[in-house]
Design a protein around this nucleic acid. Structure first.
Lengths: 276, 276
DNA sequence: CGCGACTTTGAGTCTCATCAAGTTCGGTGG
DNA sequence: CCACCGAACTTGATGAGACTCAAAGTCGCG
């Protein structure tokens, strides 16, 4: 049952309950889908390939990478469990980047053709996808702002705050310690700095008692101060919905549904299998 | 008749012919819309405002701006005639940036509620909007790549190439000379460098016989070489369509209209950024 | 136990920001 | 018509942040 797919997509929305009925009603139209296991380093898609499905990352980390002609590379996006990958290629049908697993994990596919059914039957779903894309774009914009306007220390701090916040959104059990499955070279390629300087910057943050990193394990010692120096404002991470007039659906009677009522079972298992 | 609105949106698509019939059929559903004159410096929207319409820029330049707490600012996007502004706030209903006219110009509004009609009657239109957003995001990603990986000279060169290419797309009469209505401070805020360094960089480009700038008038002297040093690959500017299976419309009988009608051609060593 | 991947540390260098002073140019008011 | 003003731009000097190169240290794993 691909119930599970939708759960992982919609879980993170306040509006979950709003669309639930519609989504539920549509579920039976979809083909059975299966979870696929991927190992760290596995390729999810390659630049130039044609894109005919979305991927939902059920567990593990992944990223999209752009390779420069000179051999250097840039990590464009980091994907965490629950993220929907490939939204932007819905229309173009073409991958512009490579996507790679950073850890072991599970993904499942959602063919565009299935999506189409959703679109057709429920314009709201299209709107929902706009919302997700919107948030993605906000992240991209935020990173751009961060990268051009701020020092290396701020950039790294900001990135850590972002990961931390996103993880908490998925599972509030990630308190102030989590696995950050990126090498310093990966971080460098994400943040547009040299690996050497990432190392130095980590030392600096550690010296100030803000974070600590050992073997991909990251400990945040002083979240408040970290956010402060990063000028981190988590609002850009929120998926926004509703101010607009786009909703066909009558605004929900705002029934307070408990998190669990969504049928999502606190999925622990998948938690990042490391390697690397 | 807001025929004019759709023309300005769809003009730039190879797929124009594909959707034309549908769009035309729908036009009558829309309320009469009017062009609004805006002066340089006029505000189109402000951060925090609620968003309930799209704007189509009929003529003139505009930009979106993000203001930092410290008073500095960043120009996030530059809008040229024919661009659709505010797509990403369709779902969120909230403006995250400010938008300002850079020159005098005309805009017209398209309320989200009208859009909804389109969505409803024609899922293809939603897909089309995805395509536009996709391209926007590609631009954002490309700028990010450019800004973190390249020197000031390359960044400026790249930006000039981008503007030039976009202008040509609108009107091929822009040959190698056009008005670039941005002060050096604006350029600095766009490219993440200091105004002083923009000046120096222009001098450098001029010294190498690549471009010339005087009173906002920009002359490209050696487009080939400029693109070369900028590592500019215009493909990321193309609005892509079709590879996917999202199209409800029967694929057009493959009338050989333009190279890209099929969606994509041989995307090799691609540059291009992406967006998830 | 040793190899390889990752990280740390040091030294030298370069790009670009900042500060500051001077220049050009269009517009405005006398 | 001229003088002045301010915005935009140019040019020079100085310094900080970050890159590169290079070498040594750590750790997991076979």
């Amino acid at each position: 049952m691909n119930r599970v797919v939708f759960d992982s997509i919609f879980k993170r929305f306040d509006i979950y309950h709003t669309l639930e009925k519609e989504v539920t009603a549509l579920l039976d139209h979809f083909p059975e889908d299966q979870l696929i296991h991927r190992k760290a380093g596995d390729c999810l898609w390659q630049e130039g390939e044609s894109a005919n499905s979305l991927l939902v990352l059920r567990s593990g980390w992944a990223c999209s990478i752009y390779y420069h002609k000179d051999g250097s590379r840039q990590l464009l996006e980091i994907y965490l469990p629950g993220d929907v990958l490939g939204l932007c290629q819905i229309a173009s049908g073409n991958r512009r980047t490579n996507a790679v697993m950073l850890t072991d994990g599970w993904v499942c596919e959602l063919p565009h053709s299935s999506l189409l059914k959703l679109f057709d039957d429920s314009p709201n779903t299209a709107a929902l996808l706009f919302a997700i894309i919107n948030q993605r774009q906000a992240m991209l914009a935020e990173r751009r702002i961060t990268m051009t306007h701020r020092s290396a220390k701020q950039r790294l701090a900001h990135f850590i705050c972002e990961c931390h916040t996103r993880l908490l959104e998925i599972d509030e059990n990630y308190r102030d310690e989590f696995l950050l499955p990126l090498t310093q070279q990966d971080l460098a390629d994400t943040l547009g700095m040299s690996a050497v300087h990432v190392s130095r910057t980590f030392s600096q943050l550690a010296a100030e008692g803000l974070v600590q990193r050992h073997l991909f394990q990251l400990i945040i010692l002083d979240a408040t101060k970290l956010r402060e120096i990063a000028a981190f404002d988590e609002r850009y991470l929120k998926i926004l919905w509703g101010g607009g007039n786009l909703s066909l659906i009558e605004q929900p009677p705002s029934i307070p549904i408990s998190p669990a009522a969504s049928g999502f079972s606190e999925d622990q298992d998948g938690r990042i299998a490391e390697k690397q």
